[in-house]
Design a protein around this nucleic acid. Structure first.
Lengths: 227, 227
DNA sequence: GGAGCAAATTTGTTATCACAAAACTCGAAC
DNA sequence: GTTCGAGTTTTGTGATAACAAATTTGCTCC
């Protein structure tokens, strides 16, 4: 489950470091406000500072990290209004993606989506929360991929990355809804029935529920921030 | 008007190179499909390859450049469908920004916007097309800034950057509409009257007209691509 | 003249080094 | 006990060099 070491995938070291850091951010390894130190990361990964530098620069450009005092990079501390903005944009963009996906996806795509959701539910009931979060992300990204809008997909990935460090606060959260009431079910139904409006509304409801839960937890999450 | 040399602004070399490359892309200095070579750029700017590398990596992450064969970076060649997608997303996001700006901006903001548009019109009638494009970009970015949504602003900047290399094709284009019919006027009116719906529709009409004109020119623009 | 292939050159990647600025440490003074 | 400051350490930046992969060149053979 854990991967303290660099993934073998990808050829260039800088790309591998970028993926690794991305994964660590989505798994909330770093707390909001924490500074990421060049040599520390390089030493842990067994590489030189140069590719780590490139990876950090990319993450800053993607909005996953923020530059502080024009020197070091740190995990952003999301304010209440900023988290609301990210979630509002996710509603717009993922809503559009869901609608387009319903128009373009075939039956096999809908079943693949259902399979992902099933794995997610299984992980949740068995208490493997980290895995649950991974499958949830996979569900949303797969939905966006079905819309066949690569620019939109990239933007949604960026928005997810900005929320990543906060997901730790969801690990110990109670169920937001009973399994059979999960909004994903209606999303899947929208895809199956090629009902774009239904898929859009369901996706937006899913995000809204997530946002509300996160906003309630935000004060205590930010209380644990570094510095 | 021209700036072959690095801007003095910003402290770090990598940041300056990044800004410079961004500017060059918006001014269509590089053709679609052109490869950007590390040592060539570094020599031209009188710096070492290291900061140029970081700048290129950032631009790839922003979608302004694309990685080819996992090695070099090149200016993307926008297909018809991809340009449509970018413009559709611009419609959605800038439309939302215009609506929010109308709700949040004050009278002084509206006049500042009108002043930018006046400078743009002046530049256009006097044939200074490059300057016209700069002022047009300033108008749209200022509009997004008035919405006070920093995440949205960053995403719109990214979308503009992807269209930047194509703007050369607009330099020699006929007027899209008579000056008094320019959609910007209705955007400004929407801001003045705090009419979010009007501002949104006008902004979207502006983008649609731009997109249609660009799509007509796209074949000949892509015909001049490199390699 | 064109195809194939090897040498030479170009080009991107990464590690190392020197440097400057920021952060930290540790006393001393009040 | 707190504050200030000098010296040390840490940390990021950018140039350089070594290396590898890709590209180009130029020659031969058909």
């Amino acid at each position: 489950m854990d991967a303290e070491t660099l993934p073998i995938s990808g050829e260039r070291v800088a790309i591998r470091v970028h993926h690794w850091l991305r994964q660590q951010l989505m798994r909330s390894r770093f707390r909001p406000g924490e500074k990421l130190k060049l040599r520390t990361l390089a030493e842990e990964l067994g590489v030189s500072p140069t590719p780590v530098r490139e990876a950090l620069a990319r993450l800053v450009s993607e909005g996953a990290l923020e530059q502080v005092d024009h020197r070091s990079a740190r995990v952003p501390v999301l304010s209440d209004v900023r988290l609301r903005e990210v979630c509002e944009l996710r509603c717009d963009l993922e809503g559009k993606a869901a609608e387009r996906a319903a128009e373009r996806a075939g039956p096999a795509d809908a079943e693949a989506l259902a399979a992902i959701h099933a794995r997610m539910t299984q992980a949740r009931v068995e208490g493997r929360m980290a895995e649950m979060l991974v499958e949830n992300e996979r569900f949303h990204m797969q939905l966006c991929a079905l819309a066949r809008m690569p620019v939109l997909l990239r933007m949604v990935e960026g928005l997810w990355l900005q929320c990543g460090p906060l997901n730790a606060g969801l690990q110990h959260m109670r169920f937001l809804h009973r399994p059979e009431d999960h909004p994903h079910h209606e999303v899947i139904r929208g895809i199956r029935q090629r009902d774009g409006g239904l898929a859009r509304l369901a996706a937006q409801r899913d995000i809204t529920l997530y946002a509300d839960a996160l906003l309630r937890r935000l004060p205590e999450i930010n209380a644990t921030q570094e510095r």
